[in-house]
Amino acid sequence: MRFFEFIFELLSPAIVTKRLTDRGFHLPLDHIPPMTLRGAILTAFFREGRVDKNFLSKEVRSPELIVSPAYPFVEGRKSYPCHPFAYKCKVPHGDSLEVINYATKIIHDLEAEREPQIEFTCSRGHSTIEGLHPKPVIPFGPNLKEVRILFHEAISVGINKHKASSERNMLFDYEAIAAGQKFWATLALPNEKLEINEGFEFFIGRGISRGFGRSRVTSVKEVNLNEEVEHVKNSIKNKAIVLYALSPLLSSRDVISSPYPTEMCSGKLLVDRVYGRMTSLHCGWDMMSNKERPTLKASNPGSVIVAR
Protein backbone atom coordinates (compact mmCIF):
# COMPACT_ATOMS: atom_id res chain seq x y z
CA MET A 1 0.00 0.00 0.00
CA ARG A 2 1.25 3.49 -0.90
CA PHE A 3 0.38 6.77 0.82
CA PHE A 4 0.11 10.19 -0.80
CA GLU A 5 -0.61 13.76 0.16
CA PHE A 6 -2.21 15.79 -2.62
CA ILE A 7 -3.67 19.23 -3.30
CA PHE A 8 -6.56 19.85 -5.67
CA GLU A 9 -8.35 22.93 -6.95
CA LEU A 10 -12.06 23.40 -7.62
CA LEU A 11 -12.48 24.38 -11.26
CA SER A 12 -16.23 24.88 -10.82
CA PRO A 13 -18.47 25.39 -7.76
CA ALA A 14 -18.95 22.21 -5.70
CA ILE A 15 -22.30 21.39 -4.11
CA VAL A 16 -21.25 19.78 -0.83
CA THR A 17 -23.78 20.84 1.78
CA LYS A 18 -25.27 19.89 5.13
CA ARG A 19 -28.89 20.24 4.12
CA LEU A 20 -31.17 19.26 1.25
CA THR A 21 -34.60 20.93 1.15
CA ASP A 22 -37.48 21.04 -1.32
CA ARG A 23 -35.92 24.17 -2.80
CA GLY A 24 -32.35 22.94 -3.14
CA PHE A 25 -29.03 22.51 -1.33
CA HIS A 26 -28.03 24.74 1.58
CA LEU A 27 -25.28 25.26 4.19
CA PRO A 28 -22.04 24.37 2.36
CA LEU A 29 -19.43 22.48 4.37
CA ASP A 30 -16.03 23.96 5.23
CA HIS A 31 -14.30 20.75 4.12
CA ILE A 32 -14.83 17.82 1.75
CA PRO A 33 -16.01 14.66 3.61
CA PRO A 34 -13.88 11.54 3.07
CA MET A 35 -16.79 9.48 1.68
CA THR A 36 -17.49 12.17 -0.92
CA LEU A 37 -13.84 12.46 -1.96
CA ARG A 38 -13.29 8.69 -2.03
CA GLY A 39 -16.34 8.17 -4.22
CA ALA A 40 -15.19 10.90 -6.60
CA ILE A 41 -11.73 9.34 -7.00
CA LEU A 42 -13.09 5.81 -7.47
CA THR A 43 -15.56 7.07 -10.07
CA ALA A 44 -12.77 8.84 -11.98
CA PHE A 45 -10.62 5.68 -11.89
CA PHE A 46 -13.54 3.64 -13.23
CA ARG A 47 -14.32 6.09 -16.04
CA GLU A 48 -10.68 6.09 -17.12
CA GLY A 49 -10.61 2.28 -17.13
CA ARG A 50 -8.08 1.99 -14.31
CA VAL A 51 -10.42 -0.21 -12.24
CA ASP A 52 -13.30 -2.51 -13.16
CA LYS A 53 -16.58 -3.50 -11.52
CA ASN A 54 -14.92 -6.39 -9.69
CA PHE A 55 -12.54 -3.93 -8.02
CA LEU A 56 -15.46 -1.69 -7.03
CA SER A 57 -17.38 -4.66 -5.59
CA LYS A 58 -14.33 -5.61 -3.55
CA GLU A 59 -14.02 -2.02 -2.29
CA VAL A 60 -17.60 -2.20 -0.99
CA ARG A 61 -16.86 -5.33 1.04
CA SER A 62 -13.30 -4.55 2.11
CA PRO A 63 -12.11 -0.99 1.36
CA GLU A 64 -8.44 -0.56 0.53
CA LEU A 65 -8.51 2.81 -1.21
CA ILE A 66 -8.71 5.13 1.79
CA VAL A 67 -8.84 8.92 1.82
CA SER A 68 -8.96 11.54 4.56
CA PRO A 69 -11.25 14.56 4.65
CA ALA A 70 -10.00 17.42 2.48
CA TYR A 71 -9.31 20.71 4.25
CA PRO A 72 -8.71 24.19 2.80
CA PHE A 73 -5.26 25.00 1.45
CA VAL A 74 -4.93 28.78 1.73
CA GLU A 75 -1.99 30.98 0.68
CA GLY A 76 0.36 28.02 0.56
CA ARG A 77 -0.59 26.74 4.02
CA LYS A 78 -2.57 23.68 5.10
CA SER A 79 -5.49 24.10 7.46
CA TYR A 80 -6.47 21.52 10.04
CA PRO A 81 -9.63 20.82 12.05
CA CYS A 82 -9.21 22.71 15.30
CA HIS A 83 -8.74 20.76 18.53
CA PRO A 84 -11.06 21.33 21.54
CA PHE A 85 -8.53 23.48 23.43
CA ALA A 86 -8.88 26.74 21.53
CA TYR A 87 -11.49 29.47 21.55
CA LYS A 88 -12.17 33.05 20.58
CA CYS A 89 -13.77 35.68 22.79
CA LYS A 90 -16.92 37.25 21.35
CA VAL A 91 -16.16 40.54 23.09
CA PRO A 92 -13.71 42.65 21.03
CA HIS A 93 -10.29 43.19 22.58
CA GLY A 94 -9.38 46.46 20.95
CA ASP A 95 -9.71 46.13 17.18
CA SER A 96 -9.88 42.33 17.09
CA LEU A 97 -11.24 39.24 18.81
CA GLU A 98 -8.93 37.35 21.14
CA VAL A 99 -8.07 33.84 19.95
CA ILE A 100 -6.53 31.57 22.58
CA ASN A 101 -4.78 28.25 21.89
CA TYR A 102 -3.74 26.47 25.08
CA ALA A 103 -3.22 22.99 23.60
CA THR A 104 0.48 22.86 24.56
CA LYS A 105 -0.34 23.14 28.27
CA ILE A 106 -3.10 20.53 27.95
CA ILE A 107 -0.81 18.07 26.13
CA HIS A 108 1.88 18.43 28.81
CA ASP A 109 -0.71 17.70 31.49
CA LEU A 110 -2.08 14.67 29.63
CA GLU A 111 1.37 13.21 28.95
CA ALA A 112 2.25 13.64 32.63
CA GLU A 113 -1.07 11.97 33.55
CA ARG A 114 -2.37 15.13 35.22
CA GLU A 115 -5.99 16.21 34.95
CA PRO A 116 -6.13 19.04 32.36
CA GLN A 117 -7.58 22.39 33.34
CA ILE A 118 -10.20 23.47 30.81
CA GLU A 119 -10.50 27.24 30.38
CA PHE A 120 -13.93 28.87 30.39
CA THR A 121 -13.00 32.57 30.27
CA CYS A 122 -10.72 34.76 28.18
CA SER A 123 -7.72 36.70 29.49
CA ARG A 124 -10.03 39.54 30.58
CA GLY A 125 -12.47 37.27 32.38
CA HIS A 126 -15.20 37.25 29.73
CA SER A 127 -17.26 34.06 29.70
CA THR A 128 -18.66 34.78 26.22
CA ILE A 129 -16.21 32.52 24.42
CA GLU A 130 -16.77 30.38 21.33
CA GLY A 131 -14.94 27.11 20.78
CA LEU A 132 -13.20 26.70 17.42
CA HIS A 133 -13.41 22.89 17.40
CA PRO A 134 -13.76 21.43 14.73
CA LYS A 135 -13.54 24.42 12.36
CA PRO A 136 -10.55 24.52 9.97
CA VAL A 137 -7.71 26.69 11.25
CA ILE A 138 -4.18 27.47 10.11
CA PRO A 139 -1.50 27.27 12.82
CA PHE A 140 1.07 30.07 13.03
CA GLY A 141 3.29 28.86 15.86
CA PRO A 142 1.15 29.05 19.01
CA ASN A 143 -1.45 31.19 17.21
CA LEU A 144 -4.38 30.05 15.09
CA LYS A 145 -6.09 31.71 12.14
CA GLU A 146 -9.67 30.73 11.38
CA VAL A 147 -10.27 29.82 7.73
CA ARG A 148 -13.22 31.26 5.85
CA ILE A 149 -14.60 29.37 2.86
CA LEU A 150 -15.99 31.36 -0.08
CA PHE A 151 -19.49 30.33 -1.13
CA HIS A 152 -21.42 30.60 -4.39
CA GLU A 153 -25.19 31.15 -4.45
CA ALA A 154 -27.48 30.79 -7.46
CA ILE A 155 -31.07 30.15 -8.50
CA SER A 156 -32.00 27.74 -11.29
CA VAL A 157 -35.22 26.90 -13.09
CA GLY A 158 -36.33 23.47 -14.27
CA ILE A 159 -36.86 23.33 -18.05
CA ASN A 160 -39.55 21.31 -19.79
CA LYS A 161 -37.70 19.59 -22.65
CA HIS A 162 -40.86 19.14 -24.71
CA LYS A 163 -42.09 22.74 -24.43
CA ALA A 164 -38.61 24.29 -24.30
CA SER A 165 -39.82 26.56 -21.51
CA SER A 166 -39.61 26.79 -17.75
CA GLU A 167 -41.51 24.23 -15.68
CA ARG A 168 -44.04 25.30 -13.06
CA ASN A 169 -43.05 24.71 -9.41
CA MET A 170 -39.48 23.94 -10.48
CA LEU A 171 -37.59 26.91 -9.04
CA PHE A 172 -34.49 25.84 -7.10
CA ASP A 173 -31.75 27.66 -5.25
CA TYR A 174 -28.47 26.24 -4.06
CA GLU A 175 -25.33 27.17 -2.20
CA ALA A 176 -21.96 25.75 -3.20
CA ILE A 177 -18.28 26.02 -2.39
CA ALA A 178 -16.94 28.64 -4.81
CA ALA A 179 -14.54 27.70 -7.60
CA GLY A 180 -10.85 28.55 -7.41
CA GLN A 181 -10.31 27.32 -3.85
CA LYS A 182 -7.79 24.61 -3.02
CA PHE A 183 -7.97 21.68 -0.61
CA TRP A 184 -5.48 19.09 0.61
CA ALA A 185 -5.98 15.47 1.68
CA THR A 186 -4.13 12.20 2.21
CA LEU A 187 -4.76 9.09 0.13
CA ALA A 188 -3.86 5.40 0.48
CA LEU A 189 -3.73 3.36 -2.74
CA PRO A 190 -3.77 -0.45 -2.53
CA ASN A 191 -1.32 -1.35 -5.31
CA GLU A 192 1.39 -0.07 -7.65
CA LYS A 193 -0.95 0.06 -10.67
CA LEU A 194 -3.09 2.86 -9.27
CA GLU A 195 -1.57 6.32 -9.25
CA ILE A 196 -2.75 9.86 -8.76
CA ASN A 197 -0.79 12.48 -10.69
CA GLU A 198 -0.84 16.22 -11.28
CA GLY A 199 -3.61 17.03 -13.72
CA PHE A 200 -5.83 14.14 -12.56
CA GLU A 201 -9.46 15.33 -12.73
CA PHE A 202 -12.56 14.20 -10.86
CA PHE A 203 -15.99 15.54 -9.88
CA ILE A 204 -17.11 16.23 -6.31
CA GLY A 205 -20.60 16.48 -4.86
CA ARG A 206 -23.97 17.01 -6.49
CA GLY A 207 -24.85 18.40 -9.91
CA ILE A 208 -21.88 16.97 -11.80
CA SER A 209 -24.06 16.51 -14.91
CA ARG A 210 -24.39 20.31 -14.94
CA GLY A 211 -20.67 20.84 -14.54
CA PHE A 212 -20.52 21.33 -10.78
CA GLY A 213 -17.66 19.98 -8.69
CA ARG A 214 -15.01 19.68 -11.40
CA SER A 215 -11.64 19.39 -9.65
CA ARG A 216 -8.02 18.97 -10.69
CA VAL A 217 -5.00 17.74 -8.73
CA THR A 218 -2.29 20.42 -8.65
CA SER A 219 0.33 18.76 -6.44
CA VAL A 220 1.16 15.22 -5.26
CA LYS A 221 3.86 13.82 -3.00
CA GLU A 222 4.33 10.29 -1.70
CA VAL A 223 4.54 9.87 2.07
CA ASN A 224 7.27 7.67 3.53
CA LEU A 225 5.36 5.72 6.17
CA ASN A 226 8.54 4.45 7.82
CA GLU A 227 9.52 8.02 8.65
CA GLU A 228 6.08 8.63 10.13
CA VAL A 229 6.33 5.48 12.27
CA GLU A 230 9.69 6.62 13.64
CA HIS A 231 8.19 10.02 14.41
CA VAL A 232 5.43 8.35 16.44
CA LYS A 233 7.91 6.12 18.27
CA ASN A 234 10.02 9.13 19.22
CA SER A 235 6.90 10.88 20.52
CA ILE A 236 6.24 8.16 23.08
CA LYS A 237 8.19 9.60 25.99
CA ASN A 238 5.82 9.01 28.87
CA LYS A 239 3.25 6.48 29.98
CA ALA A 240 0.58 8.30 28.02
CA ILE A 241 0.67 9.30 24.35
CA VAL A 242 -1.52 12.07 22.96
CA LEU A 243 -2.85 11.66 19.41
CA TYR A 244 -4.74 14.02 17.12
CA ALA A 245 -7.58 12.86 14.86
CA LEU A 246 -7.48 14.25 11.33
CA SER A 247 -10.70 12.42 10.43
CA PRO A 248 -13.84 11.36 12.37
CA LEU A 249 -13.17 8.89 15.16
CA LEU A 250 -15.79 6.17 15.57
CA SER A 251 -17.06 5.53 19.07
CA SER A 252 -16.31 2.16 20.67
CA ARG A 253 -19.49 2.52 22.74
CA ASP A 254 -21.78 2.32 19.72
CA VAL A 255 -22.66 -1.30 19.04
CA ILE A 256 -22.98 -0.80 15.27
CA SER A 257 -19.59 0.89 14.81
CA SER A 258 -16.04 -0.38 14.86
CA PRO A 259 -14.02 0.01 18.07
CA TYR A 260 -11.04 2.32 18.34
CA PRO A 261 -7.88 0.69 16.93
CA THR A 262 -5.83 -1.33 19.40
CA GLU A 263 -2.87 -2.28 17.19
CA MET A 264 -0.12 0.21 16.46
CA CYS A 265 3.40 -0.56 15.19
CA SER A 266 4.54 -3.70 17.01
CA GLY A 267 2.70 -3.03 20.26
CA LYS A 268 -0.71 -2.31 21.70
CA LEU A 269 -2.50 1.03 21.73
CA LEU A 270 -5.17 1.29 24.41
CA VAL A 271 -7.46 4.30 24.20
CA ASP A 272 -8.07 5.89 27.59
CA ARG A 273 -9.96 9.13 26.85
CA VAL A 274 -11.13 11.16 23.88
CA TYR A 275 -11.66 14.94 23.99
CA GLY A 276 -13.94 16.24 21.26
CA ARG A 277 -17.52 16.89 20.26
CA MET A 278 -19.67 14.01 19.13
CA THR A 279 -21.34 14.08 15.74
CA SER A 280 -23.34 11.86 13.40
CA LEU A 281 -21.19 10.41 10.64
CA HIS A 282 -23.22 9.86 7.48
CA CYS A 283 -21.53 7.08 5.53
CA GLY A 284 -23.05 7.98 2.17
CA TRP A 285 -24.82 5.89 -0.43
CA ASP A 286 -23.85 2.41 -1.57
CA MET A 287 -24.01 2.65 -5.37
CA MET A 288 -23.54 -1.11 -5.86
CA SER A 289 -26.56 -2.14 -3.77
CA ASN A 290 -28.43 1.16 -4.25
CA LYS A 291 -29.09 1.75 -0.57
CA GLU A 292 -28.06 4.18 2.12
CA ARG A 293 -25.17 3.25 4.36
CA PRO A 294 -25.66 3.50 8.15
CA THR A 295 -25.18 6.66 10.19
CA LEU A 296 -22.69 6.22 13.04
CA LYS A 297 -21.73 8.14 16.15
CA ALA A 298 -18.25 9.62 16.00
CA SER A 299 -15.99 12.24 17.51
CA ASN A 300 -15.37 15.20 15.22
CA PRO A 301 -12.09 15.64 13.35
CA GLY A 302 -9.65 17.52 15.55
CA SER A 303 -10.45 15.38 18.59
CA VAL A 304 -7.60 14.59 20.97
CA ILE A 305 -7.00 10.99 22.05
CA VAL A 306 -5.14 9.89 25.16
CA ALA A 307 -3.76 6.37 24.78
CA ARG A 308 -1.36 4.04 26.57
Rank of each mutant, 00 (worst) to 15 (best):
L10A: 10
L11P: 06
A14T: 10
T17V: 12
R19M: 07
T21L: 11
D22G: 12
R23E: 15
R23C: 13
G24P: 06
G24R: 03
H31P: 07
P33M: 11
P33Q: 11
M35C: 09
T36C: 14
L37H: 07
R38P: 13
L42Q: 10
L42W: 06
F45S: 04
F46N: 02
R47I: 15
N54A: 13
L56R: 04
L56W: 01
S57Q: 12
K58F: 12
S62V: 13
L65I: 14
V67N: 00
A70V: 01
Y71R: 01
F73V: 05
F73G: 00
E75P: 03
K78Y: 09
K78A: 08
S79W: 00
Y80L: 10
Y80W: 11
C82T: 08
Y87A: 05
C89F: 07
C89T: 06
P92E: 08
G94K: 13
L97Q: 03
L97H: 10
N101D: 15
Y102G: 04
Y102M: 05
K105W: 06
L110E: 02
I118A: 02
T121S: 10
T121N: 09
H126M: 00
S127F: 11
I129S: 00
L132F: 04
L132H: 01
P134I: 05
K135R: 13
P136Q: 04
V137L: 07
P139F: 07
F140S: 10
K145F: 09
E146L: 15
V147P: 04
R148N: 09
I149K: 03
H152Y: 07
A154K: 03
A154W: 01
A154M: 05
I155N: 03
S156P: 01
V157W: 01
V157H: 06
H162Q: 13
A164Y: 11
E167C: 12
R168S: 14
N169G: 08
N169V: 06
L171A: 13
E175G: 02
A178C: 09
G180A: 03
F183I: 05
W184T: 09
W184L: 10
T186E: 10
L187G: 04
K193I: 14
E195C: 13
E195Y: 05
E198T: 15
I204Y: 01
I204S: 02
I208A: 12
I208M: 14
S215Q: 07
R216K: 15
V217H: 06
V220W: 07
V220Y: 06
V220R: 03
V223T: 11
N224M: 08
L225E: 12
N226K: 15
N226F: 14
E228C: 12
V229T: 13
N234G: 08
N234D: 07
N238H: 05
N238D: 05
N238I: 00
I241G: 07
I241H: 05
Y244P: 13
A245V: 08
S247K: 00
P248I: 01
L250R: 00
S251P: 09
R253C: 14
R253E: 15
R253P: 10
S257E: 12
S258I: 15
T262P: 08
T262G: 14
M264S: 06
S266C: 11
G267W: 00
R273N: 15
Y275I: 02
Y275T: 00
R277T: 08
R277Q: 10
T279G: 09
H282V: 14
D286E: 14
N290H: 13
N300H: 09
P301I: 00
V304Y: 04
V306Y: 12
V306C: 12
V306E: 11
